Simulated scan of single mutants.
Amino acid sequence: MSNAIAQTTSHCSNGLLYASWNQDQGCFACGMENGFRIYNTDPLKEKERQDFVDGGFGHVEMLYRCNYLALVGGGPRPKYPPNKVIIWDDLKKSQVAELEFSSDVRSVKLSRDLIVVILDDRISIFSFSKNPAEQHRIQTTPNPYGVCVLCPNNNNSLLAFPGTEIGHVSLVDLANMRRAPVDIPAHEAAVTCLAFNLQGSRLATASEKGTLIRVYDTNKHDQLLELRRGAANAHIYCIAFNHDSSFMCVSSDHGTVHVFASEDPARNKQSKMAKAGGLLPKYFSSRWSFAKFNVPDGQPCICAFGSDKKSIIAICADGSYFKYSITSKGECLRETFSKFLQMTDD
Rank of each mutant, 00 (worst) to 15 (best):
N131W: 00
L110H: 06
K275R: 07
C12E: 14
S124L: 11
C148S: 08
R229V: 15
R112S: 05
F247G: 07
Y321H: 00
I326L: 15
V182C: 06
E208F: 02
Y237G: 04
R137Y: 01
H59R: 09
K130E: 12
F290T: 09
C303L: 05
F196E: 02
L279H: 05
D113N: 12
E208C: 04
L224A: 12
C151W: 04
P78H: 09
P300C: 04
I313V: 15
T336F: 06
S328P: 01
V72A: 12
D104R: 10
V53M: 10
V116F: 04
S286D: 15
T205I: 08
E226H: 05
I125F: 03
I118T: 14
F241N: 06
D24E: 13
C238F: 03
F161Y: 13
R334N: 03
D264I: 15
V117H: 07
H187A: 08
N294W: 00
H235N: 07
P132C: 14
N67M: 09
G75H: 11
V85A: 11
L158E: 03
F260C: 08
I184L: 12
L227W: 11
S252M: 01
S311M: 07
D89N: 15
G55H: 09
E226L: 12
N22K: 07
F322V: 01
G167T: 03
S157D: 06
G73I: 12
F322E: 00
D264S: 11
C27V: 05
K309I: 07
P162N: 00
L227R: 11
S20L: 09
M1A: 13
F28I: 15
L279N: 02
T256D: 02
N67G: 12
C238L: 11
D51A: 13
G15C: 14
I86G: 05
G230R: 03
G255T: 00
